[in-house]
Design a protein around this nucleic acid. Sequence first.
DNA 1: TCCAAATCTGAACGATGTGCAGATTATTGT
DNA 2: ACAATAATCTGCACATCGTTCAGATTTGGA
Lengths: 204, 204
Amino acid sequence: MSLLKPRGTYHHGNLEEALIGAATQMVRTNGAEHLSLRAVAAEVGVSPSAAYHYYPDKDSLIAGVGKELFERLADLQEAASSKFPSKNAKGARARFRALGMGYFEWAVSEPNLFRLMFGGYCSIDFADAQFKRQETRAWNLLCSCLDDLEKYGAIDPKIRPYGELLAWSTVHGASALIIEGHLPKDSFSAVLDGLELMMGIRQR
Amino acid sequence: MSLLKPRGTYHHGNLEEALIGAATQMVRTNGAEHLSLRAVAAEVGVSPSAAYHYYPDKDSLIAGVGKELFERLADLQEAASSKFPSKNAKGARARFRALGMGYFEWAVSEPNLFRLMFGGYCSIDFADAQFKRQETRAWNLLCSCLDDLEKYGAIDPKIRPYGELLAWSTVHGASALIIEGHLPKDSFSAVLDGLELMMGIRQR
DNA sequence: TCCAAATCTGAACGATGTGCAGATTATTGT
DNA sequence: ACAATAATCTGCACATCGTTCAGATTTGGA
């Protein structure tokens, strides 16, 4: 179903999703801080007030965008994850790297969307079931990867309890610092190298 | 010198700094996304246009706030650093922990200011000398701490080359994820424990 | 003392988020 | 098939915002 309302019609037919779609696109290119509700409505071919039937205010619309983005990120992680079978130490290690790299590449390729998710631009209700499910899904991918590494003796067992926390913090921190220009882009692979070294992640 | 212009006067006398001060305070409590140039001017007792004599637009004012905040953070790190002499392994370790804790506590106690600095809200000119100096100052504190740890054999030499990158990324990432509600507040000490463990940072 | 530079005001413009009354279309019950 | 009701959308209005610009006020130097 199209995002733009056919002219001559009164009902859009798909407004809620169309608004999210247009808003996502506009945040993607202009940044969340420059998003205009009126521009989103115009893009979709609808009056500004129409949006208020689905979202009580602009912040809620942005939160809606955010919720969808967490789903996209979890999908990305799942795709990266499923590329590497992880039936042995080598596979688990490749999966770990793919998860980190996927996270970083998402951040670098879509900095405005990444900022929207993690920069305090959107006030998602953290009790929201849909959101919780997506974040848990991504978190579990990381956990099971670490579990595999442990199973194959490919991670320092002393470090294992800190694994999820450290991996996410480090990868997220490096990604954030890089897209904001505080660290050079090419430093990420070094971060990942260092992280694997520190965690005792090795083949075999 | 006061921030509010005495009524009955025409010239403020200290507008540039007063604007930054008022803006900082308002960002601190309301967040950068809700900062109003007009409100800042009113707070200082001046017409909105007056600000344009010192800052070409609102973004520049926010950037000015940001620049000052990086100075404040470097000061904080310096204070935390100088509390721990680092004349031996134990001291160097305490200093490392103080640097990490100081960074985190700053983030947690002033989330809106932290977001302004690192969330893409302010477009600081990274070539700006004043900014560069402050960021370098903080970076050097971390480097010399790691150097000390190395000197006293209190860090895994294999890890040392990745030290600054990993420490900053991890501490920053955990801080950011925590203030945005993605991780519980009390997880930070675990992150720091894990980081020290991973880096082979130990007493003696 | 007088002139130039620095500093600030006031009014104005277009754009924005949001509320509300009412118009238009879809859906449901009979 | 038709009427009543709900869902959806429009148009207008209002306050606020960032920004511009002509001009008022003050300061400092020759």
